[in-house]
């Protein structure tokens, strides 16, 4: 199953273009983590088994020779779709449009923060605030919630709302939507909201209706998607 980064439609394996909106789909292949050797998705930003940072130099070294150079996509549409909003938009309509059109087209829609999602990007807090983290049950990896964010977005890379916590590196992450859920900090409490995921969210095995908030307590079990396959334990430290 390949989720369309543009419209979130879930496409069958082997699709190179979204069946719904014809956006070229990311070619997701499995690669071996250079640190622990586990099999992880090529578009993940960190290894879900050992936490190894797969972004930056590592990504370029591992992924690009494998799929972007030696294997041109068999895709009839070359719509440039940035994998993450942090990358510059390669779309250059200069020759064919009036200037004003060019200007508005290259303007990014979303101004959401693009905090890096790898666990190593959260240095020890200086501001003494309550910090929270998510322990991934299946791999025992702990992800800290980025500090000072009122809203932390959970999901997988997309160009709409880039996730602050990227779960694409975990096994079974194909059941998690690109834009899956938010954790909001208000007063001195954390609240969990499903932001319209395809497969839903379960808190302590009870479905959380989209739009409903759940006040998180330490020890709460959060499952993204059905079947308790991508699950976290919420933890707080003062």
């Amino acid at each position: 199953m390949i989720t369309c980064p543009s419209c979130s439609h879930q496409n069958p394996d082997g699709a190179t273009h979204c069946e719904a909106c014809y956006t070229p789909l990311p070619v997701i292949t499995m690669i071996d983590c250079p640190s622990c050797g586990a099999s992880v998705q090529s578009d993940a930003s960190f290894c879900g088994h050992c936490g190894f940072d797969l972004t930056a130099k590592t990504t370029a070294a591992i992924i690009q020779p494998q799929q972007e150079v030696s294997e041109p996509l068999p895709s009839p549409i070359q719509v440039p779709e940035p994998v993450s909003a942090a990358e510059p938009d390669p779309f250059q309509p200069v020759e064919i449009t009036p200037d004003d059109l060019t200007e508005i087209i290259t303007m990014p829609v979303s101004t959401a923060p693009t905090a890096a999602a790898s666990p190593s990007s959260n240095p020890k807090t200086q501001l003494q605030r309550i910090t929270a983290s998510l322990l991934h049950v299946q791999t025992n990896v702990t992800l800290e919630l980025p500090n000072n964010l009122q809203v932390t977005h959970l999901g997988k890379p997309n160009n709409l709302i880039p996730p602050d916590i990227d779960v694409s590196g975990f096994p079974d992450s194909d059941i998690v939507s690109r834009v899956h859920a938010d954790i909001r900090f208000e007063g001195d409490a954390f609240y969990f909201e499903d932001t319209g995921s395809s497969n839903g969210t379960y808190i302590n095995n009870v479905p959380l209706p989209a739009g409903n908030r759940h006040r998180l307590r330490p020890g709460d079990r959060i499952s993204l998607g059905k079947g308790d396959k991508v699950s976290f334990i919420f933890q707080m430290t003062e």
Binding site: S6, H17, C21, T23, V79
Partner: peptide
């Protein structure tokens, strides 16, 4: 294909 993509999008 682009014509269809334009419509669907």
């Amino acid at each position: 294909i682009l014509a269809l993509a334009k419509y669907r999008q």
